[in-house]
Design a protein around this nucleic acid. Structure first.
Lengths: 204, 204
DNA sequence: TTTGGTTAATAAACACTGTTTAGTAAATTT
DNA sequence: AAATTTACTAAACAGTGTTTATTAACCAAA
């Protein structure tokens, strides 16, 4: 059955071409500028063709989100070098912030934009973010078992640290920190300091 | 010059009618469902008429956001009864969460959706959110001066508490907590607990 | 009171969007 | 070689924000 296999390969290749073109346009021009027609033109196919490979735009955005999480995962894998849990936690925070400020559009897609989550069925798990979430959760597990932080519930500690970092980043990316009295340009540094203060509070 | 005044009044009235209709549809049917054409139909005018009173949709959304912040401000004014700064802080947190879970669409418009912020010029302040922000900042000022918390910078403490609460809420509203291992229905309670734990960490 | 100018409102069009349908041409199977 | 399945697309549908040209109402001055 060589033909069936080749066809499957071709189908996968086409999805790759679509998602690659979409990500490229997305990173370069932003969420607002990508449209099915735009993507279709980029890959030199008709708009309708995209619907032979993706149910709708949300499903495509879901796949793009998956790619973004792979990028963050690779970054964690490569640059998360510290062995001490507390140092490792601080390093993860810093990498998270770096990713957010370097790739604001991708961050948006991963954590803020609603569309890519629409494809998930009610009970279905969010596989895209899982691997990255585990990085943080495993560190928190060590911190709790070694009693390095003033929290005892791993799930709660993980969620809380993530929420805190995401809170800063998302308020910044959505322009809500125009109220805080800090200079726009200083905000990345301010956020880094605020999160380090949080880790200090957290330490046992 | 009675005529000029009447005309100004009529202009203000029309803006009211537009923003009221828009908010009503927004709360009832959500962000995706409101369109200029829809709003125009509701108030029984043509779509083009709206552009005589609002430069574009973003400006209208900015006004709607202002209304939403008035609602939150009124809630704070009425229900923020505690006098002790730490109790007051916890109460504010709870009211903030209550507002977010009761009025998710309004919360979205106030803190997540990008459009209403587009109208603000580069240097312009974000007046819409200011009054509400002050509620938190004044409490934090008291906490810092009375040495009730383990932070010394009022601006940083204010920003941090807000970011933490917003982080939880926005991850929840944008369906990202499908990864945390918590049951969907329990999440509001989990967030409340997590924020209380944060306040515990914060206490001197 | 009639003329002239300003203002308010709109119908229609423009340039987009996501998506579906019907039809064509090529590839594969029989 | 004929029949069938597959891959693709042109065109249309239903919607979006916004602009333009035109009409009707109002108001001020002659």
């Amino acid at each position: 059955m060589g033909i069936a296999e080749r066809k499957e390969r071709e189908k996968a290749d086409m999805r790759r071409r679509i998602v690659d073109a979409a990500i490229k346009m997305f990173v370069e021009e932003g969420y607002e500028k990508i449209s099915i027609r735009n993507i279709a033109e980029k890959i030199e196919y008709s708009p309708a063709t995209i619907y032979l490979y993706y149910k709708d735009k949300d499903e495509l955005l879901h796949d793009m989100q998956g790619e973004a999480f792979i990028a963050l995962g690779v970054m964690f894998e490569q640059k998360l070098t510290a062995r001490d849990p507390l140092k490792r936690l601080e390093q993860l925070m810093q990498l998270y912030l770096q990713f957010a400020f370097d790739q604001p559009e991708l961050y948006d897609l991963m954590f803020i934009i609603k569309a890519p989550m629409n494809t998930l069925k009610e009970s279905e798990d969010w596989m895209n973010g899982l691997a990255c979430y585990r990085f943080l959760e495993e560190i928190m597990e060590e911190c709790v078992t070694q009693k390095l932080i003033r929290m005892h519930d791993v799930r709660l500690a993980t969620l809380s640290a993530w929420a805190h970092a995401h809170g800063f980043v998302s308020l910044y990316l959505r322009c809500r920190l125009k109220i805080s009295g800090f200079d726009e340009a200083d905000i990345p540094k301010v956020i880094e300091k605020a999160l380090k203060d949080y880790l200090k509070l957290l330490r046992a």
